[in-house]
Write a protein that binds this DNA or RNA. Structure first.
Length: 567
DNA sequence: GCCGTTTTCGGCCCGACTGTTTTCAGTCG
């Protein structure tokens, strides 16, 4: 069992207990445990075998016993019992924005509604507004949010899909007779969500591959099968399409699988114009193998990276020799949005810095939350001063690595920042973000954010649109005006690498680039593990056609400090 | 539930917003 699978049980347990109206602190303890377990770097089973579960911070005697039960039996009795008692659909209802345990309970008791589907129907029929405390606005919010969820039904976050794809590909690769395995499709193009995983396998014989795949613990059943293609359902609810081809056809199969359809068709058309075909002209044979670059080269085109293959002008740019030199993970020299134990992070400043060093970074910026964000233990002004003193003294000890003093300052509902300008001025780097009053109207929200963009002390605007993929829509915002303001003030916009944020997204980041706005790719990490998510931010930047020069944190430390001073 | 200790209980979490009301409960970050 993977750590996050154990964590998930406690996460769900907390939701179930919340529905039952259990003690707040007990629920918080379970939530905290789920978070800590999901962030562990060592496999939980190892810690368990050493008998050191209760040594994990946030895990006491009781939760340790429950983890023991989960690892020994594969499930948790208390969790299963609650699932029997409470319809699982209620948890989904509770996860809708604006609906918590009380309202879900009310909806269940008064309307007999226990699933999203039933709730959508009840809302459309105007039955929800009859409940105390709920009116027509709540009703239309419910409908909108359920529709948003339906839109992405069956789609999963890129990071989740990549994890599963990596595990399956690693497994298939070592089978006898298998020479190459790669994921194609939207996953290879690094789309923010994917509908299913496409794996292309080069193997001498398809049958042994499929037999082995079916035996993999993550695989539930084969759902379709035609020729050399197999579709199966996994334990994670993600479908996998497996295409098994002889090695000489691997590259063309991968190329086709990668798509996008529009890009593929365009290339196909251009090849046809030269009397060529992907299928017949790029099948390898004895002494001759092809790579994707050969397909492009036959059209006198440079290799087009999968992230660009969306038919958004990449073929035309390639024809004119104007393809960007896309930013790469190795261009990144530091992380400019990091939380620590001073606010709601799980790692200390020293730990986060040490990890950054291991990654080969030259710097990080410690940007803990500001005073108003109470739930995240936002730092009081005095604590902030104290933290910055502590960081300066740390910097004196390690000469070749720089920790920037910073803050993620809240952009307050009425505009203005949650920290006086004198203090912001002293910090090396200021990220300003919205964490409250998401439902303001477009005009108010736009003015609010522009007030931060125009503040001379603000360097970067964090997660600009506030969306959480599949969970929360972006707030109402005149993006065009915000971009204009950022361009004219030289304010930097963040590409937040969190797999459920990816905010700015590819489209908006490309717009920003066209306006000459610089961007910072940051993880917003709250623990060591999530510092690894930088690659997802980089993938957004690549899909947005960004080059190293567009990105603030590709700068060396000296260049960065000079740049920040001049702003 | 966990944690820490002033060592076995008391503290941990709080203010603002929203949609509904007409004074506030529920939700959120």
């Amino acid at each position: 069992m993977q750590n996050f699978e154990v964590a998930w049980i406690f996460h769900e347990l907390a939701d179930l207990l919340e529905f039952k109206g259990e003690d707040f602190f007990k629920i918080r303890a379970y939530r905290n445990a789920a978070r800590v377990l999901a962030c562990l770097e060592e496999p939980l089973e190892e810690i368990w075998k050493r008998g050191e579960l209760a040594k994990i911070p946030g895990i006491g005697k009781n939760i340790a016993a429950k983890i023991n039960e989960v690892l020994a039996t594969g499930h948790l009795k208390k969790h299963e019992e609650l699932l029997q008692e409470i319809p699982p659909g209620l948890l989904e209802i509770m996860s809708l924005p604006g609906i918590g345990p009380k309202r879900a309970g009310l909806i269940y008791r008064k309307l007999g509604v226990a699933s999203l589907e039933e709730l959508a129907r009840a809302a459309r029929e105007g039955r929800v507004r009859s409940l105390p405390g709920m009116g027509s606005k709540t009703e239309s919010d419910i409908i909108r949010n359920i529709e948003m969820r339906e839109d992405r039904a069956g789609r999963v976050l890129l990071a989740t899909a990549r994890e599963l794809a990596g595990e399956l590909a690693g497994f298939l690769k070592i089978l006898p007779g298998v020479s190459r395995v790669e994921a194609g499709g939207s996953l290879r193009r690094w789309q923010e969500t994917v509908g299913d995983i496409d794996l292309v396998v080069a193997a001498s014989e398809p049958e042994p591959v499929i037999q082995a795949a079916v035996a993999h613990p993550r695989v539930r059943e084969i759902t379709e099968r035609s020729g050399n293609r197999f579709r199966f359902q996994t334990q994670w609810g993600i479908s996998v399409d497996l295409e098994i081809v002889p090695e000489e056809l691997f590259v063309q199969a991968l190329f086709r699988s990668t798509g996008s359809k529009a890009h593929y068709r365009k290339i196909q058309g251009m090849l046809a114009g030269r009397g060529k075909h992907v299928e017949s002209d790029f099948a390898g044979r004895a002494g001759k193998t092809f790579e994707e670059a050969d397909i492009y080269a036959s059209l006198d085109l440079p290799f087009i990276p999968p992230e660009l293959r969306e038919d958004r002008g990449e073929v035309e740019a390639a024809l004119q020799g104007r393809l960007p030199r896309l930013v790469e993970l190795k261009d990144i020299k530091g992380d400019l949005h990091i939380h620590t134990t001073w606010s709601d992070g799980l790692g200390t400043v020293e730990q986060m810095a040490a990890r950054a060093r291991e990654k080969g970074y030259q710097y990080i910026a410690v940007t803990d939350h500001s005073q108003s964000l109470k739930i995240a233990r936002g730092l009081s002004l005095n604590m902030l001063r104290e933290q910055h003193r502590a960081i300066r003294s740390l910097n004196e000890q390690n000469g070749d690595f720089r920790i920037l003093t910073g803050i993620e300052v809240d952009i307050l509902p009425k505009g203005g920042l949650d920290c006086p300008d004198e203090l912001l001025k002293e910090a090396d780097l200021v990220v300003a973000s919205v964490h409250s009053a998401f439902k303001q109207d477009r005009e108010t929200m736009t003015a609010r954010i522009i007030s931060a963009v125009e503040n001379r002390n603000v360097d970067i605007i964090g997660h600009l649109t506030g969306r959480l993929i599949g969970q929360r829509e972006e707030y109402a915002l005149d993006l065009e005006r915000v971009l204009e303001a950022a361009a004219s003030c030289g304010t930097i916009l963040e590409i937040n690498s969190s797999p459920d944020r990816l905010d700015l997204n590819d489209i908006n980041a490309r717009k920003a680039r066209e306006k000459g706005i610089k961007m910072a790719i940051s993880t917003d990490a709250h623990d060591l593990k999530r510092m690894d998510e930088m690659l997802y931010g980089v993938s957004v930047a690549r899909r947005a056609w960004l080059e190293p020069g567009d990105i603030l944190n590709t700068m060396d430390i000296d260049e960065l400090l000079q740049f920040l001073r001049k702003r």
